[in-house]
Each structure stands twice: as structure tokens, then as C-alpha cells.
Amino acid sequence: MVLETQNLTKQFNGKGGFKEVTLSVEKGQVFGFLGPNGAGKSTFVKTMVGLLHPTSGFAWILGKPIGTVESREKVGFLPENFRYHDWMTGKELLTFHAELYKIKNPGKKIDELLELVKLKGHESKLIKNYSKGMQQRIGIAIALLNDPEIVFLDEPTSALDPVGRIEVREIIKELKSQGKTVFLNSHLLSEVEMVCDEVAVINHGRIIAQGKLEELLKEHTHVEMIVSDYTSELIEKISRLSKEFQFKEGKLSFKVEDREKIPIIAKMVIEADAKLYQLNTQTSSLEDLFINLIGKDEVS
């Protein structure tokens, strides 16, 4: 595992932060960490990179306990509230961070990264003259300077325009193809849906769902059916197999957690000698899943 936590907790005077988070992220994955504002996402990432001290629990990055210098050797990090020394030029800033990583002769790597984040030609400008989007781009370059095994990107596209967002998505895909692990904190669910293999959803500091994105989405398939000549016994059976069941004048609308239930339900209709006119399925989007999960958590 590239990242592993066991009952990791970080709270501030018994409040906020996150509680008892147990996660594991495999090598080469793009892992999405989702949650509403104040859920504890950034606190979690800051704890991972040693900026915050955990209250309890354990965590390792590449087998090294978090908080140690060794655990940060192959880590890249783009903070959510990125700010860089604005008295430096772009190139000076990258050189400074390369020196902090103790990279010898970083010139070639810096040129490559400037090219990657589309800042070539702007390297001699002072950071204070960079736009917010340019500062976020150089932040991404800084996060990739040491050829990291795992990159923590905390809202990496918050200051970028749509084109910039697509470019960052491409960078993430490229990192994945190189076998790197990306831990992505993002509000942009569509973005997460496009690049992530696995996600965890955090709310009020607790993980409320975790797993492969495909599996999680499969669990929430929406089904619509139109039937006639049905019996009340058949409708009763279908409602027991599904969730959020609604029925009105032959129209059934419900959700199933397992897609395998769909052919079973269709078979039940046929065997009950009812007529099946229409059966539509629609897999939930990550947004549906997210709202559903957060909504349920708020109720409970």
C-alpha cells in the first residue's frame, strides 16, 4: 500500500477534523477524497504530509510513519490555499523547492515541468505578477519536482479555467500511466468521476462510503418500469427487493443496490403473468451518489 491509515483521528480541542479514518490506497491509483465543506478533507491531507499532528491512530506513507522526514521523501503536495514566495520568479521558486528536496542539477526537470504546466515563457516573471491560475499551475509543478510516488492534490483546479481543468486532468492521467498514486481532494464531482479509480466520502469527519468508483455507482442503479395486469403480491415483492420504491398506476420507479437484481425483478414480472411494457435503467452519477450519501448521513 502507498498510503494506509488505521483509526486515524485529528481533532482540535475535541472538535472538527476527522475521526477514526481507516483507509488504504494502492499503488498506481487515483483516489478521490470527497466531502462537503468542513468535512475534514484538507485536515486529513495536511495530517498526511506532516503539517498537523494526529490526535490518535496510525498512518503510513510508503511504509513510513507519517510525521517523519522519510515519509515525505517521495511525496508531492499541492495545498488548497496555495501561496508561494511572491518575491521570487517562477524559476527561482522551483529551484528553491528543488533544493529543499535536495535535487542536484534540477534545471532539466524544471524545464520539463514548466512545459507540462504550460508556464514556459513565464519563468522569469515574479510570482506576485502571476495570476491565481498560474500560481496553481506552478504549485502543481512544485508538487511534481521530486518525481513523487504519491501526489496529494487538494482542490487542484479551484483557480483554473475549463481549459486548465482539462489540462490538470490530463496531468493526473499521465501520472497514473507512470504508475504514480494520486490522492485527489476535490469538490468537482464530475472531475473525480472522470479520473478516479476509487473514492472515499467523508462527512462530519467520518468516512461514510469507500470503494471502487464503479462498484459504488453500480450500487445505486435507478430503474423505471411500466407494467399492467399485475397483482398486489408482485408489487409487494418488487418493493422488498428495492429502495426508494414508488408506484403509481402501473409505473414503478425504484433503485437497486446490485444490478443483478434487475433480471430477477424482470423474471418475477413475467412469471407472475403481468405484462412488461418498459424497463429503463440508469446508473447514478457520482453527484447523485454523493448527495444520496450525504443526505442519508445527515438524517442519521
Partner: peptide, 14 residues
């Protein structure tokens, strides 16, 4: 206060 510390102390330095 400015937040520049985040990118420094997330590096392998004490």
C-alpha cells in the same frame, strides 16, 4: 499566516 509554510514543511525537512 500567509500559507507559504505548507509547501515548505511538506518537504523532507525537519
Amino acid at each position: 499566516e500567509s500559507g507559504t509554510i505548507y509547501s515548505i514543511l511538506s518537504k523532507p525537512i525537519k
